[in-house]
C-alpha cells in the first residue's frame, strides 16, 4: 500500500505544474526584488550597488516600523475577527430554518470589487452626509468623529471595512469545512443531551481545526501585505496615520521613485510574513502535542 502512495514519479508529476509555476513566476521575482534592494535605483536611471545599505536603513526607519506596527495591528484584528466569522458559520450550519438563503446572502458582499467596497465605505464614513454620522446624529450624538480624517479613529475605521470585506471569504471556507462533518456524529451528541453550544465548541470546532489553522495563517499573512482599501480610502493618511507596510512600499517604489528602497521594504515584508508563519506553525504544533 505504501508503495503506491510513495511512488516518487507520481509525486514529482503531481507537484510539477504547481511548483514550476510558483518557482518561475513567484520565486524569481522575489529574488529579483531582493536583488533590487541592494541598489540605489530610481527605477529610471543607472543602478548604483550599495550592498545592504537599504536594509540597514530600514532598521532605523521610523516610518517603516510604524507601518509594520499598523500592519501587525491589522493582523491581530483580522485574527480576532475569525472568531466572529466562525460563529456566523456555526450558526448557519446549525439547524436554523432558511440557513441556505442566509448563507447565500451573507456572502454576497464578497463579490464586490475593491473599488466598489472603497466607495461604499467612504460613504459610510463621510463626516457630514455619511451613513454612520447621519445615524449617530439621529440618535443624539451631536459631534460624531470625522472617521477617516482623525488619527485616533482612522485605523480602526478602515479595519472594520477590511474585516467586512473578508467576511465572505472566511465564512465560505468555514461553511464548507463544517459541511464535511458527518450528521451522525452530531445526532449522536444530541441524543446524549449535548446543547447546540456544546456541539459547536466540543465537536464541530475541533473537527475543523486544520482548516482553522489555515485561516489563521491566511488572515495574518494577508493582513501583513494588505493594500487595497487603505490605498483608496486614505492613501495611508492623514499624515501617515494609516500607513501600512504595503502602502509604504508602494509609495517608496512608485511615488517617490526610490525603487531600490521600495524593493527592500517588499523583501522585508516577505521575511516578516515568513517568520510569523513559522512562529504560528510552532505554536500550533506544540499545542497539538500537549
Amino acid at each position: 500500500m505504501d508503495k503506491v502512495m510513495s511512488n516518487k514519479w507520481v509525486i514529482f508529476l503531481y507537484l510539477l505544474p504547481a511548483t514550476l509555476m510558483i518557482g518561475v513566476l513567484v520565486y524569481i521575482p522575489i529574488a529579483v526584488s531582493g536583488y533590487f534592494g541592494l541598489f540605489d535605483w530610481d527605477g529610471v536611471g543607472a543602478m548604483n550597488f550599495i550592498g545592504l545599505q537599504n536594509y540597514t536603513e530600514l532598521l532605523t526607519d521610523s516610518t517603516f516600523w510604524f507601518s509594520a506596527r499598523n500592519s501587525f495591528y491589522l493582523a491581530l484584528f483580522s485574527t480576532l475577527a475569525l472568531v466572529v466569522y466562525l460563529g456566523v458559520a456555526l450558526v448557519l450550519s446549525s439547524k436554523v430554518k432558511g440557513r441556505e438563503l442566509f448563507r447565500k446572502i451573507y456572502l454576497i458582499p464578497m463579490l464586490l470589487s475593491s473599488v466598489a467596497i472603497a466607495q461604499l465605505w467612504i460613504r459610510v464614513y463621510d463626516p457630514n452626509n455619511g451613513f454612520l454620522n447621519t445615524f449617530l446624529r439621529n440618535i443624539g450624538f451631536d459631534n460624531p468623529p470625522a472617521w477617516l480624517a482623525e488619527r485616533d479613529t482612522v485605523l480602526f475605521a478602515i479595519f472594520v471595512a477590511i474585516v467586512w470585506q473578508f467576511a465572505g471569504f472566511y465564512i465560505i471556507i468555514y461553511t464548507a469545512a463544517l459541511k464535511g462533518i458527518s450528521e451522525e456524529l452530531v445526532e449522536a451528541a444530541e441524543i446524549d443531551g449535548a446543547s447546540p453550544l456544546q456541539i459547536a465548541t466540543r465537536i464541530k470546532v475541533p473537527l475543523i481545526s486544520g482548516v482553522i489553522k489555515t485561516t489563521v495563517v491566511l488572515a495574518i499573512v494577508g493582513s501583513l501585505k494588505y493594500f487595497d482599501l487603505i490605498w483608496v480610502m486614505t492613501g495611508g493618511g492623514p499624515n501617515g496615520a494609516s500607513e501600512v507596510l504595503a502602502s509604504y512600499m508602494y509609495k517608496e517604489a512608485f511615488n517617490r521613485n526610490n525603487f531600490g528602497y521600495g524593493s527592500a521594504i517588499g523583501f522585508a515584508l516577505l521575511i516578516l510574513a515568513l517568520l510569523t508563519t513559522v512562529v504560528i506553525q510552532k505554536i500550533t504544533k506544540s499545542k497539538e502535542s500537549q
Partner: peptide, 15 residues
C-alpha cells in the same frame, strides 16, 4: 508553495 502567498504583488510587478 505557502511562501508564494507572502509576496506583496507590487514587489513582483517590475521583475
Amino acid at each position: 508553495i505557502m511562501v508564494g502567498y507572502m509576496i506583496p504583488i507590487h514587489t513582483a510587478l517590475v521583475p
